[in-house]
C-alpha cells in the first residue's frame, strides 16, 4: 500500500482509489487536535457516507481535502496528486477537480440560477470571460443540461434568492457537477431541508453522480439515509475513524460507540 503511495502516480484508469488520506491531523489551537490521524481511501465510484456526532471533525475533514481548511499534517492524494503542499495556481487547479455541496447551499443570492451554475467553471475560464459573462458555448449547453437534470429547466434566469431550500440545493449540486469533478464532497447537504425534500435531493445526488461516474464523500446526520444511499459507511467520533464498512455491517453497538449512550436508539 505504502509502496504505491510513494511511487510516481500510475495512469488514472488503473487506480482503484480516487482519494487517499493518510495520517491527517488538524489542530485549530495547538495541542488540541480536531482530527487525530485519519486514514481513509475512497473508491473511484459510489457514495461514502461519514457519520458521527456534531463537532467531531467531519466538516473539518471535508474542508481539509479541498484545503478550505489548512491541515496541520498528513497526506491527501487525489488520483496521485499530493494536495497538502499546493499553493496559488496549482491549488486552484486541484480545487477545480473537487466539487463541493454545502449545508447552507452557499449560492450567490443576487445572481441568477444560470450564473450560479456557471460559477462552477470559474476555475477554468479566464477572468475577463467571467466578467463579461462570455462563458464558452459548451459550458452554457452543459449548464442547461444540468439544470434539466436537477429539474429546474425553467429557472435559469431567476435570481437564486427566489428559490426554495430544496431548489437551491439542486442548483448547488448542478454547480458542483459543472466543474466535471473527479470527486464530490457534500457537507451535510440535506440538514437544512425537510425530510421529504432531503430524500429527493439525495436521490438526485446519487443518480447524477452515478451517471457521471463521480465518487462522493458525504457528511450526513441521518443514519437511515446514509444506509440507504451509501456503499460504505465511515463512523467518526472524537476526531478518529471508529467504524468503516458496508451499511449492512453497521450494527446498534457501532452506533452506540459512535454517538455514545443508548437511550436515543
Amino acid at each position: 500500500m505504502s509502496a504505491t503511495l510513494t511511487a510516481a502516480p500510475p495512469p488514472a484508469t488503473r487506480l482503484e482509489h480516487a482519494l487517499e488520506i493518510r495520517g491527517l491531523f488538524k489542530e485549530y489551537t495547538a495541542g488540541k487536535p480536531v482530527l487525530k490521524g485519519i486514514d481513509l481511501a475512497v473508491a473511484a465510484e459510489g457514495i461514502t457516507a461519514i457519520i458521527g456526532p456534531s463537532g467531531t471533525g467531519k466538516s473539518t475533514l471535508l474542508r481539509c481535502i479541498n484545503r478550505l481548511v489548512e491541515p496541520t499534517r498528513g497526506e491527501i492524494r487525489l488520483r496521485g496528486t499530493e494536495l497538502t503542499g499546493l499553493r496559488g495556481r496549482d491549488l486552484r487547479l486541484a480545487r477545480r477537480r473537487i466539487g463541493m455541496v454545502f449545508q447552507e447551499y452557499n449560492l450567490v443570492e443576487r445572481l441568477t440560477v444560470m450564473e450560479n451554475v456557471l460559477s462552477g467553471r470559474l476555475g477554468y475560464v479566464p477572468f475577463w470571460r467571467a466578467w463579461l459573462r462570455k462563458y464558452p458555448e459548451a459550458d452554457i449547453q452543459r449548464a442547461f443540461m444540468l439544470l434539466d437534470a436537477v429539474g429546474l429547466p425553467e429557472h435559469a434566469t431567476r435570481r437564486a434568492d427566489a428559490l426554495s431550500g430544496g431548489q437551491r440545493q439542486r442548483v448547488g449540486i448542478a454547480r458542483a457537477l459543472m466543474q466535471r469533478p473527479e470527486i464530490l464532497l457534500a457537507d451535510e447537504p440535506t440538514s437544512s431541508l425537510d425530510p421529504r425534500t432531503a430524500v429527493e435531493v439525495l436521490e438526485l445526488l446519487a443518480k447524477l453522480t452515478a451517471a457521471e461516474n463521480v465518487p462522493v464523500i458525504i457528511n450526513i446526520h441521518n443514519v437511515d439515509l446514509a444506509k440507504r444511499y451509501a456503499r460504505r459507511i465511515v463512523g467518526m467520533a472524537g476526531g478518529s475513524v471508529i467504524f468503516d464498512g458496508p451499511p449492512e455491517a453497521l450494527q446498534t453497538h457501532h452506533l452506540q460507540a459512535i454517538y455514545g449512550g443508548e437511550d436515543w436508539l
Binding site: 449548464a143 442547461f144 434566469t157
Partner: peptide
C-alpha cells in the same frame, strides 16, 4: 427561447 443563458 429558453436556451438564452442570460437576460441581457
Amino acid at each position: 427561447a429558453r436556451r438564452v443563458a442570460f437576460a441581457p
